[in-house]
Structure formats: C-alpha cells, structure tokens
Design a protein around this nucleic acid. Structure first.
Length: 707
RNA sequence: GGCGCGGUAGCUCAGCUGGUUAGAGCGCGUGAUUCAUAAUCCCGAGGUCGGGAGUUCAAGUCUCCCCCGCGCUACCA
C-alpha cells in the first residue's frame, strides 16, 4: 500500500425531498465515514464528498402540490440533512448541492464534452403530451388518466397505482394534465440519449476481470459478490441508449442552442455532483481538484452506496466517465444491502422506522447518543445481506460491549493507576510485555478488515482487543498482589500493558465512535487525535515503543458509558422503551385497521346488471410464464367457460378441481396472456391479500343465479 | 417466469482459490474473582453447514435438481 496514493470517497447524494432514516445511514454514509476516518488516521491524502441531489420531477411535483417553490423544498432538506450528518459525525470534507452554479457549469461542460465527441449521443424525436395552458411538456407523473388495463381513473402516466401496471402516458384513456386539468395535446419533442450500448464490452471486462484492454485496473475479487452479480446480469441482458434530457423547467439547462426548455435528466447530473463537490472543496482549500479525479494509477476512487444504486454507479456513471476520457474509474463500489427495522422494511407512510434527525431529537437526553447509534449500526451493517436493526440489540451493543467491555476496562485500569501510582504510568520491567504482542496480531487483523471494507468485523476486533485487556488484567489480578506487595513489578507491568492497550483503543475505535475516542484520550491524558496518529501507533507497536511512556500522567477516571439497563436509574431505558412502544402502537392500529370504506351507493338496476352464477371448477392449470394466473374450466351446467384467474399464489392448480364457486357470468371477455377469460371467480380477500373461495350452499348444482 | 444475492449452533453472523476434530459474539450451564458501571475471567453444553443427487482420495466450499427469503425484471389482481 503506497502512502503516496490519493483517495476520493463519495457517498450517494441524498435526494433533497425528504429526511434520511437509519437505513440510509448504515448503507452509504457510516461505512464511508468509517473508511474516511481510518484513512485520515493513517495519514493518507483523502477527500470525502457528498451533497444534496436537488433536481428532478419529484421535487417540482411536490412543490406544485404544496403550492410552494421547489427552492423552498431543497433548502429545507439540504439544511436538515447537512446538519444531521454533522451531528452524527459524518465527516464529509465537503457537502455540496447540485443547485449550485459550480455544479451547473460542471455538468454542462461534461455534457458538452460528450456531445462534441459526436459518437456518444444520439437524438430522438417523439410525440409527448404538452400542456398548452401552461406552455410546457408534461413529465409522465404530471399526467393522469384512465388505466387501459383496469379502468382505474386516477392512473399516472408512468404507472397505475390501482393495478400496478407500468404505463406510458400515451396509453392512458382520457389523459389529463395535473397542472391545468386540461387534456394535453401530443407534440413532437427531441431528446438526447447516451449510447450506453457502445460501452457494453469494456464494462463487462472491467467488472468481471477488473481489467481494461487487458491492463489491470482493480482486483475484481475485492468487489462484493452481489455487486458484480447484479452488474453482469444487467450487461447480459444488453444495454440500451439512455435518455439523458427532460422537458422540465427545474434542473440544469441542456447547453445547446436548440434545447429550449430542456434540462439534463437528474440521473445524469447527480453523479457529476461528486465532481463539482470536489471542485468546491478544492477552491476552498487551495487544492487542485483534478488530482483527485484524474490522478492516474495513484488515485483510488470509491463510491459508497446502497444496493439500489449499484447499476448506476457500476455501469452508467463509469460509462460516462470513460466516454469523457479524462477521469478515473472507481476502484471499488462497496454497496451495502438494506437495513430493516425491527423485522420490517422502513416505511415513511406507515411510520415504521426512525429518521436520523428524529433519533437525535428523541434521544436528546441520552448521553453519547451519536456514538451509541453509530456503534449499533456498524455492528449491524448490512454488508453482504439485508440486516435488521432492533432496539433490544441496540441496548445489548451499548451495555455489553461499550459499557461492560470497553468502558469498564478503562475504568478499572484508570482507577487502579490513580490508586497505586497517583495517575502516573508505571515503569515496565521488561521492555515489551508479552500480552502486547498478542494485541499486535489483532491490530494487524483489524487493519486487514478495514482495508477490505469489512467494517463489522473490524469493529468487533476493537472489542476483542478490549477483551484481551480485560483477560490479561484478570489473569494477573494485580489487586491481589498489591495488597501484600505494593512495589511488585508484576503489578507495574500489568498496568503498563493495560494502559498501552487503552491508548491503542483510543485510536482504533475512533473511525467507529469518534467522540468516544476523544473521551478515552482525555481519561488517558492524551492529546486530541491528529491525522496520521494511527500510522504512528502502528509503527510504535512494531517498534515496541509505548503510546503512554512511563511517568505519563493520565486524567481523571470517568464512566464512559452509563448503562441503559440500570436498576438505579431507568431514565435511559425509558427513552428506548418509548421507541418500542411507538412501534407497538403502529402494529396494534394496523391489526385493527378498519375495513376498506364502502364504495358509493348503487341502485337496484346497477345490481341487476350483474349475472352471478353457481358453478364447479372442472379443470385447472397454471398459465405458463405468469406467477399468479391459473387457467380454469368452469362448468355452469348449461355451458363450460374458460376463466383466467389470478389466484395461483394461493391455490395449487390440481387441488381446486371440483371446487364449487360463484362467478360473474356476464363480464365482458378479455384476453390475459393470450387466453380469453370469460368471466370472473368471486373471491374474498383479507387484509393480507389472501384469497378464499366464496361457494354456493351445499348441494346446489351448477348454473343457478345468485341474487 | 427470467436474472442476481442469500439460507452455517436458540439468536446475530465469519468461513479466501475444496484438505486435519466447522468458528466468534450474545444467550444458556458451571466455576473463579471483587480493582470496576451487579462489571470481569475460566471451563462447558449446543450444528445431518436449507433438502437431494453427483464429481473427488477429500465438499459448508465445485456441478445439477428442488425448497425458502430478499432484490431487479416480466406478467398479473
């Protein structure tokens, strides 16, 4: 590992349309921060950037709905997210925003560079809906209409929320602009497409082998399996040109003369935000941004993201960078999987989960709340598969590892040092007591895990080192010896060694819990950590030189972490319990949720239009290439019907033959997967979406009407 | 339906290119200890490595089939 290397770390740009929850933190920000802090402690030359992603139709949509300016939305969430990251100790060197002038200029330049090459883009003209009153093209989401598939009248131009079908706006029946309420007209519009397909071949080689034209770029085996797997799967299904412009008035104008009213698609400009953030940082710190983006072999670019962003950061953005020609490609994209919350997915609408700023607020009276959270999330990080955040585990990690193991160790040795030696580090008999060599082995492993982005394992190693300290202290039991012989050398050696271990802990825990690290430093009478301190410590350990020399005066013993499970003081437990109760309330409310509201009244004529009949299923088979469909033959007595029914998830085909059913016999026929369905089976559906047959009374034959 | 990733002790997970009696933490059971935040330390009990077949001298690790979970995608109420 050359120390001359420069590192550029990025965390996924949060969309400035909402607050971030613990899953985001565990997925993209904490791991990057851990790594950034680690590299700084090793004295490496690094920049860690992030920023708010502030363009896109979703923000303008919301602004429209709430009757405010998009600027208000992005200002609100940019400020909120930026300050929350700061409070949680996410140590970005720069937190930028894509609405800045510098970003606009950077993104436009990038676009133009590709445009001028002539072979990276293609133009397509197509007919899209246009709102004549507001004089603008309508993004898919701005159009509502009747779903051609299920008849739902409030379907959006990209998707019907009733039946879930993916739609294109031109499929909608009676399309209506959501801004004016008028029917939009079709108008020709031109868009630019990035020819991603051109890049397929080198991308495959780059991802599968880590080489470009046979030249080694990175170690392909160092990439996470799920990252490589997902990318190769995408490449195998073939890349398509991607549209990179939109008709919108919110975003970065396409810098071409014939592009009035067009902006860069948010997915195109967002990753360029990494570049503009670096530029702004460089301007403010008198550096050259190009050293971190165009650094050749001495540069490591690393993107920290969640798994939802894999394809974008491993295929699309690298293709953009490569097409541009001057930029380095990422050396790794250690994407994390998803974090669940008490066994279920985070859900804003359900209120399931806790957002970062809500946590800080709810835990405002909780000491070390930032580090407690960071620690629990790191120990639970979804590095290779989805993981689960539980409050009970939060308590366990806090009490058993931070308080009992680490905090107590520190308290034990600081109290003993003060009591026996008035706070001065004793003189060791042998130069480097044996236990310290064992710790050195653990330290090597710790470095290895961090370098391989295994933060969970590295974090556990910190505890192992603390444990090693406890074990050693227990083995020697200096309090027993000291009673009879206060000047005993074994006692001095023991505390000397333990103090060295504590000194090391104050450094190696810093990437995970930076505030705690400083507290430990204070207790040990050590100065605030500086960049490069870890490098020095590793060297000292190798050279068998103490971090706390004999005679060094430590500070006052202090409780590092007050336990949550404390019989005398239940205030901390109460804070956590409150969170658990809130979840309980949500679950209870949902379980007794009212039934769906009744539909509007119909009259008798409406009802009599339905022709419901009794029948029997006489054959049943699964429809190929469909998960939910069964093809049924139903006997009505006077005739047999073919009915395609979406019940395959709940019933096996051969087990429902002979089933007595009710059906709608006069429903207009419709083709499903090429089979004409001539009616519909009546099913009851519960809150979980499970289906059950509604059957005629015992002994009733086929074909009778139901009224 | 297609593709990707996962399924290892009660729980959470580690096990690189196949190689001695499958590991850690928590929990559980014992014992020791009191410097310390009723903390700490020792020892122990727990696993047909999702199921089945195969390749091999040897498989948790490779191949095939099946089952389950998550994600993407297609289709669909």
């Amino acid at each position: 590992m050359k120390s001359s290397k420069r590192y550029l770390l990025t965390s996924a740009l949060p969309y400035a349309n909402g607050a971030l929850h613990l899953g985001h933190l565990a997925g993209a920000y904490l791991p990057a921060d851990v790594y950034a802090r680690y590299l700084r402690l090793r004295g490496r030359d690094i920049v860690f950037v992030c920023g708010s992603d502030e363009h896109g139709a979703a923000i303008t949509m919301r602004a429209k709905k709430e009757g405010i300016n998009p600027q208000e939305i992005i200002d609100k969430y940019h400020t909120l997210n930026k300050s929350t990251f700061e409070k949680l100790g996410i140590s970005f060197d720069y937190y930028h925003r894509t609405s800045s002038d510098l970003h606009k200029q950077t993104a436009q330049e990038f676009f133009l560079k590709l445009y001028e090459q002539g072979d990276q883009f293609e133009e397509h003209t197509s007919a899209q809906y246009y709102d004549e009153e507001f004089d603008q093209f309508l993004a898919d989401r701005y159009i509502k209409g009747t779903c051609p598939k299920c008849g739902y009248e409030e379907a959006y131009g990209d998707q019907c929320e009733n039946c879930g079908s993916a739609l294109s706006p031109t499929e909608l029946i009676n399309p209506v602009s959501t801004i004016s309420g008028n029917n939009p007209v079709l108008r020709e519009t031109k868009h630019w497409y990035f020819k991603l397909d051109k890049h397929e071949e080198w991308l495959r080689e780059w991802i599968a082998d880590g080489t470009i034209n046979g030249k080694v770029h990175h170690d392909a085996k160092a990439w996470k399996k799920h990252v490589v797997g997902q990318c190769l799967s995408w490449l195998d299904s073939g890349l398509q040109p991607r549209s990179i412009t939109r008709d919108l008035d919110w975003g970065i104008p396409v810098p071409l003369p014939d592009a009035e009213g067009k902006v860069l698609y948010v997915w195109f400009d967002a990753p360029i935000g990494y570049i503009s953030a670096t530029k702004q940082w460089a301007l403010d710190n008198d550096k050259n941004w190009e050293d971190y983006w165009k650094g050749g072999d001495d540069l490591e670019l690393i993107h920290f993201i969640g798994k939802d962003n894999i394809v974008f950061h491993c295929i699309v953005f690298p293709a953009m960078l490569q097409a541009h020609g001057e930029y380095n490609l990422p050396i790794n994209v250690p994407a994390n999987q998803f974090l669940n919350f008490e066994g279920q997915k985070f859900s804003k609408s359900r209120g399931w989960g806790i957002e970062q700023h809500e946590y800080l607020e709810a835990f405002r009276d909780f000491p070390n709340k930032e580090d407690a959270l960071r620690y629990a999330l790191i120990r639970n990080m979804p590095e290779n598969r989805d993981s689960d955040f539980k409050w009970d585990e939060f308590i366990d990690f806090h009490d058993k590892e931070l308080a009992d193991n680490l905090g107590n160790f520190l308290n034990r040795i600081s109290v003993l040092t003060v009591k026996y030696y008035e706070g001065a580090v004793p003189l060791a008999g042998s130069r480097w007591p044996a236990p310290l060599a064992e710790v050195g082995t653990l330290l090597d492993k710790w470095v290895e895990e961090l370098e391989g982005f295994s933060f969970k394992a590295a974090c556990q190693l910190v505890m192992e080192i603390s444990s090693a300290g406890n074990t050693f202290l227990q083995d020697v039991s200096p309090w027993k010896i000291w009673k009879d012989d206060p000047e005993n050398q074994q006692v001095k050696d023991c505390l000397f060694s333990c103090l060295q271990i504590a000194g090391l802990l104050s450094i190696i825990i810093s990437p995970f819990t930076p505030a705690t690290a400083e507290k430990i430093r204070t207790i040990l009478g050590l100065p605030t950590l500086q960049n490069g301190d870890l490098e020095l410590a590793i060297q000292s350990w190798k050279d068998q030189l103490p971090l706390l020399p004999s005679g060094h005066l430590i500070g006052e013993p202090e409780i590092l972490f007050a336990k949550i499970n404390n019989k005398k003081d239940t205030s901390l437990l109460a804070i956590v319990e409150k969170q658990k109760e809130q979840l309980q309330v949500i679950l209870e409310e949902e379980s007794q949720k009212e039934q769906a509201p009744l539909k509007e009244l119909i009259n008798f004529d409406d009802f009599s239009k339905l022709d419901l009949r009794t029948g029997t299923i006489i054959s049943s088979e699964k429809v190929p290439k469909a998960n939910k469909l069964l093809k049924l033959e139903v006997d009505l007595g006077f005739e047999k019907r073919t009915i395609v029914s979406g019940i395959a998830e709940y019933f096996e085909a051969d087990k429902i033959v002979g089933k007595r059913v009710l059906l709608v016999a006069n429903l207009a026929p419709r083709k499903l997967k090429g089979i004409e369905s001539q009616g519909m089976i009546l099913m009851a559906e519960n809150e979980k979406g499970e289906l059950g047959f509604v059957s005629p009374p015992e002994g009733w034959p086929e074909g009778f009407p139901v009224r």
